[in-house]
Design a protein around this nucleic acid. Structure first.
Lengths: 148, 148
DNA sequence: TATTGTTATACTCTATAACTATA
DNA sequence: TATAGTTATAGAGTATAACAATA
């Protein structure tokens, strides 16, 4: 069986929303404290890119700059992210995780991954390998453009 | 290369939010009129299950009953869905697509699938087949429970 | 009592438009 | 002028809690 681009598109369009819903529900269920999916993704980006600018974060997450500004606002208010003026270019901000942010992200990662892993454990290893490979493929197709 | 449940979970957690964002952005971009992803999914369910109840729709979409009530409210106000009392059990509602709802869904399907297909067309047929198979697998893992 | 659905309330996410500050 | 970011405004999505109507 082979898949045309259109058949493949149909599958993606049906299944991806299902998966994101399960992920979101689990993140919400977990309280210490709970993170939304976008908040989680922002923390992951800042962890991987300490000192990131807001524009970089917005691009990575795939949202507009104003949306990112509001999103980060919430994280700063919850003391998960530190937002400092950039030394040298005072238009920019410098985003880093606070100690609390690091801990929260670590816990949320463990929790959510463990939850997903538990579901995925029902698959055979061959099936999981195919899923992981497909995720790699989709990442290449749907990653935001790398401008900087 | 094989994938443990935890590695697979990590991949899913990273890639699925990326894909959903691209889908959402495309649906929003399209105006005639634009649908959100949940609205789209609700319409798909009602199309496939004419006369569906609100509870059924909520379960299929993976949201709570109050959320579904609000969501359908918006669709009724936009004249995309008809919400009638159920004959026989007056607690229930009967959801069907209006003519406008059918047209809008059809257009949105074509548009979004074509957009995704265009992206996926850069893959080889073997890659697309793997992606489609992986979607099937994930659907089994993450579908809401079928109670009724 | 149990089921189906709605309403009230509160947040978050997201966009576009308009703005400020800096380069 | 161009860039980085914020604020204003608006609408959708979502949850929990409380409620109403029907079975």
């Amino acid at each position: 069986m082979t898949a045309s681009a259109d058949q493949c598109a149909r599958e993606v369009l049906e299944v991806v929303p299902l998966v994101i819903r399960v992920i979101r529900a689990q993140m919400r269920r977990y309280r210490s404290p709970a993170l939304s999916v976008p908040q989680f993704r922002a923390l992951v980006h800042i962890e991987a890119n300490p000192g990131a600018s807001l524009s970089q974060a917005a691009e990575h997450i795939g949202i507009t700059l104003p949306s990112a500004s509001v999103l980060v606002d919430g994280l700063v208010q919850r003391n998960l992210v530190s937002r400092e003026p950039h030394s040298g270019d005072r238009r920019r901000v410098t985003l880093t995780l606070t100690q609390r942010g690091k801990q929260t992200l670590q816990q949320s990662k463990e929790n959510t991954q463990a939850f997903l892993a538990e579901r995925l454990a029902t698959l055979t290893e061959a099936e999981r390998t195919k899923v992981a490979q497909a995720m790699h493929t989709l990442r290449d197709v749907f990653s935001p453009p790398q401008n900087s």
